[in-house]
Design a binder for these strands. Sequence first.
DNA 1: TTGCTCCTCACGTCACGTGAGGTGGC
DNA 2: TTGCTCCTCACGTCACGTGAGGTGGC
Lengths: 163, 163
Amino acid sequence: MTAMDRTAPAEQRLQRIGEVAEQVGVTARTIRYYEELGLLGSTDGRLKGAHRLYNDADVARLRELIGLRDLLGLSLEQLTELAEEADVAVCLRAQWENSADDADRADVLLAGLPHVQRQLELVRSRQRSLADFEAQLLTKLSRMREVLAAHDEQRDPTDPAAS
Amino acid sequence: MTAMDRTAPAEQRLQRIGEVAEQVGVTARTIRYYEELGLLGSTDGRLKGAHRLYNDADVARLRELIGLRDLLGLSLEQLTELAEEADVAVCLRAQWENSADDADRADVLLAGLPHVQRQLELVRSRQRSLADFEAQLLTKLSRMREVLAAHDEQRDPTDPAAS
DNA sequence: TTGCTCCTCACGTCACGTGAGGTGGC
DNA sequence: TTGCTCCTCACGTCACGTGAGGTGGC
């Protein structure tokens, strides 16, 4: 990282709302609604009526929110709570960007750890539920096949064409 | 199974809507709404204003619907489609109950197989998505720990108390 | 008879969908 | 200049939540 990177951050690729929506798999309306709820980062600095522009970090954040919503079935209220914790991290992240002190940077990371760990726990819990549901379906399936096999035997125990 | 079972099916334990709701983890309103959409079996035979009663098969069906909704994120419209396939099975199930012919019974089961298999595929697909999301979180976590470890070394490379 | 749960409207809410009508950038 | 995507209201919809007011079974 050079001094120039620090003083004038590299020009990032900025995307418009339609491109972002398609990438993430939602509609533009959804993104605007999340912004309205304050789920996305600070939106001041955009003039009324001007186009919204998103950098890669914004897209990553949105993708994470949608993942938590879809895969874990969290409500937007729950996402807001989760995001408020994360906002501490985001707030600290700004501090990170401006911090020359490595100790400060470590503190920022330490604060973010439990946040990610909680998400991991939610994912694991959901995986267990899915495994249970899968087991139920497998039991059902094997019982059905059992009865079918018994019936096939009864109908024609020696027919090699029976499947 | 005795002849009496066939002619006068065993008295089943019947539950009221509140008990069922608590067992399955939804509200009574949800159950009434699903009935309104036709997601639950036939509801004729109940007089206007009379209490709803559910047997074990009804509860199992509801539990399956809620599982598909929550774990797979299906809309009620998708559930309706899926249930219409299943209704063929349900319709055939009535035929099953009244059928003395084992061949008929086998046909009913055969018709139900692809239905269960499709649900299994949906579960597997969802499991893959969750695994991807988990991997992303783990990558994030290990990167954070890496930086933290590097920092700890730099601060005090010989401190045995550093964790 | 007293609670309790149930019933049926019916309006409210959350998370967007869907136009209407207009402006801005390649 | 012509499309295209974007913008801001604003009403509609899906899947229920939440009382209001009343009836039925242990």
